[in-house]
Simulated assay, not measured.
Amino acid sequence: MVNIRSLDPSASPLDYYGSELRRLREAAGLGQSQLGGIVFCTGSLIGQIETAKKVPTRDFSERIDAALMTGGFFTRLVGLVLRSQLPTWFQPYAEMEAKAAYISTYQSQLVYGLLQTPAYARAVLSVEHSDLLDEMVAARIERQRILERDRPPVLWVVLDEAALSREIGGREVMRAQLGHLLTFVNEPWVQIQVLPFKAGEHAAVMGSFTLLRFDSDPDLFYAESYDMGHMTANPEVMRERSVGYARLQATALSVEDSASLIARVMEERYGHGGVA
């Protein structure tokens, strides 16, 4: 039976997406199964998205735009929908991250979200979000689109060596993840340094943090705990953490030596003949 659950378009971006999909589908004189046949999915999936029970993907949105000739409406809207699937406490940071001109981050345990592969992100998120895993992975990958802009932000990542050694998702996932990091070697807007174990105590022993800089807005410091994020524009905090980050960059391996270490770990630890 066709699902005719009514939606309040103002309730959320997902509800708005669903109500507009239904409205434009009906305006085109198509049933759910008919539209599903055109965009290569089931009528049931169309119904689930129209009733906000399923989160649409970017690929689905592009196919819907082509089928209904909506001029890219759903492709533009899906970014907002996916961002709304992020944890509520994380959404303010994601919004500012998307506006930043310069992102500097130190990551003590994991690869930074903007550089994660889908498989690595799925393994990380499955620990706490198994019930909404597909949606959470899609939302994380959507964040990465800022690196594909004509004028992307400058991204500088200092990655603790622990993130290379911590096996997330299994050896194949880690091998692919480290290989993905190496694809940025010749990307001028993305710089990756590894802070080696031999550095010992360092300026960020208290944990991961990120500095966001903007063309016209105040700079921001961001760090997070188990279930919440802390973001501030306090000038003293920014001054202290900026100096700390500069010290981390000076202590870390050079970009070139970092790439060599990543490649070595990828082959020696996660290659087919690597350690178990």
Rank of each mutant, 00 (worst) to 15 (best):
L220I: 14
L195R: 01
V275R: 13
S225N: 14
A138D: 13
I4W: 11
W189V: 13
R239I: 05
P153K: 11
Y93E: 07
L45K: 15
E50N: 00
L114I: 08
L253F: 05
Y106K: 06
H230C: 09
A139F: 02
I141Q: 15
I168P: 03
Y16I: 06
D8N: 13
G179E: 07
Q193S: 01
F209Y: 10
S260N: 08
N234R: 12
S216V: 10
A263V: 01
D131G: 05
G31E: 08
V237R: 07
L164H: 03
V137E: 01
G200I: 07
A66V: 06
I49K: 01
V205M: 14
E267R: 00
Q177F: 03
Q109A: 15
V55R: 06
E97P: 05
R269F: 00
L14V: 04
A204I: 00
P56T: 02
E236V: 12
G273R: 13
L77N: 08
D15W: 13
A138C: 11
L212T: 03
L14D: 03
S254F: 03
R213P: 03
A138H: 10
V2R: 14
Y245D: 07
V275F: 13
G72K: 09
L147S: 14
D160G: 10
E26S: 11
G47R: 03
F214W: 07
S216F: 07
V265I: 12
Y16R: 13
R76L: 12
A250H: 10
L24S: 12
S19A: 15
D257R: 15
F221M: 04
R213C: 09
V78H: 11
H202Y: 05
R5H: 09
L211S: 02
P87C: 14
Q116I: 07
T57N: 07
M238Y: 10
M206G: 10
R149I: 08
V243Y: 08
V243T: 13
C41A: 12
F184S: 01
Q193N: 04
P87M: 08
S258C: 03
V194K: 02
E268V: 00
Q107C: 13
L82E: 12
Q177D: 05
W189R: 15
